[in-house]
C-alpha cells in the first residue's frame, strides 16, 4: 500500500503549506514552492487542499505504485508518463498496481507536484509535514527522497474496479484554469527600505528585466541586472523576512527569498513579491526574466482572495465529480 521510489530524482521532497508558528525559534517555514499548484493537485483527487504532496525538480524520481489509487499532477510540465504512455497534468488519474510514473523532459516550469488520493502517511513535525532539509526534520525522514524509499498511502480504498484491466485511466474532469499563465510579470509591494534606492535604481527596478541566475534554489533566487544603488549607508538591524521578500545585497544585486528562506535578515528589504504571484515565481528557472510591476495592497489582497476562491470552487467541483463518478461506476 505505497508509492515506491525506484529511481531517485535530484531534489524531491514532501511538502505542504509550510510550518508556521516556529519562526520565532529560527525554524524556517519551508512548504511547497508553488502552493497554488500543490492545492490544485490536492483538489483534483478530492483531498484537503493542505494535504502533503511530493514536490519534484527535474530530473524527477521514478515511482512505482503497489496498489491502485488516484493521483493528480500539477505545477511544472516534466512530460510525465505512466508505463511509457504520456499522461496529462491537472487531471485525476486512476493508476494501477505496478504502474510506473516517470518524468521525461522539462517542458515548462520548475517544480512539479504529485498528490495522491487520501494523502501520504507522513508524521507531522511541529504541526507540518514539510521537509526542513537544514534541520533534517519533517517530511520523509527530514531529507529528499532516495531510491527504495517507500511512501505509505493513508487511503486503503481499492480503485481496481475503475481501471477495468487498464494500466491507467484519465478520469473525466480537470482543472481548466490551472494552466499556469507563464507571465514574466511579477507584482510587488514596496519594502520598508524601498525609499533607500536612488530614483535611477527604482527606475531600473521597475522598467528593466531581472534574470534568474544559477545561484537559485528553494532558499532564494539571486537576480542579475545593473547593480542598484542606495542613498544611504544605514544598516538594517536583523528583522523578520518572508517568502517573496526582495533583499538588496551589498554588491547591489537582488535576492528574492523563497520557501526555505531564513526567518530573519539584515539586508535592506526593498520590495516584496505579492503572495498571489509567488506561485508564478516558483515556476521560473535559471535564465528566465522577471519584470517587476508596482502594485498596491488592495490589488494584492484581491488577487489572493480570488485564487483562494478558485481553489475552493475547484475543490467542491472535484469532490462532487469524484463522488458521482465512483458511485456511477460501481453500480
Amino acid at each position: 500500500m505505497s508509492l515506491k521510489v525506484i529511481k531517485a530524482g535530484i531534489l524531491d521532497t514532501i511538502q505542504d503549506m509550510g510550518r508556521y508558528g516556529y519562526q520565532q525559534l529560527g525554524i524556517n517555514p519551508n512548504g511547497a514552492m508553488d502552493k497554488y499548484a500543490m492545492q490544485i493537485a490536492n483538489a483534483l483527487v478530492g483531498n484537503d487542499l493542505q494535504e502533503a504532496v511530493i514536490e519534484l525538480h527535474f530530473p524527477g524520481s521514478v515511482f512505482r505504485f503497489t496498489q491502485p489509487t488516484l493521483i493528480a499532477l500539477s505545477g511544472a510540465d516534466f512530460s510525465p508518463s505512466i508505463n511509457g504512455v504520456p499522461v496529462p497534468l491537472h487531471h485525476c488519474i486512476a493508476v494501477n498496481k505496478k504502474d510506473e510514473l516517470q518524468f521525461n523532459k522539462p517542458v515548462s516550469g520548475a517544480r512539479a507536484y504529485i498528490a495522491v488520493h487520501g494523502g501520504l502517511e507522513i508524521k507531522e513535525w511541529l504541526q507540518s509535514r514539510s521537509t526542513n532539509l537544514k534541520a533534517g526534520a519533517g517530511g520523509f525522514r527530514g531529507r529528499n527522497l532516495n531510491k527504495n524509499d517507500e511512501l505509505l498511502l493513508k487511503s486503503k480504498n481499492d480503485f481496481c474496479y475503475l481501471l477495468q484491466g487498464n494500466d491507467s485511466k484519465i478520469l473525466p474532469w480537470f482543472a481548466g484554469f490551472a494552466a499556469n499563465e507563464h507571465s514574466p510579470e511579477i507584482f510587488f509591494l514596496p519594502g520598508n527600505e524601498w525609499e533607500w534606492l536612488t530614483e535611477e535604481s527604482k527606475k531600473i527596478f521597475t522598467t528593466t528585466p531581472f534574470v534568474i541566475t544559477e545561484q537559485s534554489d528553494r532558499m532564494g533566487y539571486r537576480l542579475e541586472n545593473t547593480p542598484l544603488i542606495t542613498l544611504t549607508n544605514e544598516e538594517v538591524v536583523s528583522s523578520a523576512v518572508g517568502f517573496g521578500t526582495i533583499q538588496l545585497l551589498p554588491v547591489g544585486k537582488l535576492i528574492v527569498l523563497m520557501a526555505d528562506h531564513q526567518t530573519t535578515g539584515g539586508y535592506p528589504r526593498v520590495a516584496h513579491v505579492i503572495t498571489a504571484h509567488q506561485s508564478r515565481l516558483a515556476q521560473m528557472k535559471t535564465g528566465d526574466e522577471i519584470w517587476f510591476r508596482l502594485t498596491d495592497h488592495q490589488t494584492a489582497e484581491e488577487l489572493l482572495v480570488k485564487q483562494q476562491q478558485h481553489l475552493l470552487q475547484l475543490q467542491n467541483a472535484c469532490i462532487f465529480r469524484l463522488q458521482e463518478y465512483l458511485h456511477a461506476d460501481r453500480y
Binding site: 508556521y20 516556529y22 520565532q24 528583522s239 523578520a240 526567518t263 483562494q308
Partner: peptide
C-alpha cells in the same frame, strides 16, 4: 498566524482571507 520578534521589531504574519472575511470591502 504567527509572530517573529527581532532586536527592535515585532512581525506578525496573518491570513489575508481570514482577516478580510471580517472586514468591510473598503478596508484592506
Amino acid at each position: 498566524i504567527e509572530m517573529i520578534p527581532a532586536y527592535s521589531s515585532l512581525t506578525i504574519r496573518y491570513d489575508v482571507c481570514t482577516v478580510r472575511k471580517n472586514t468591510t470591502i473598503d478596508i484592506t
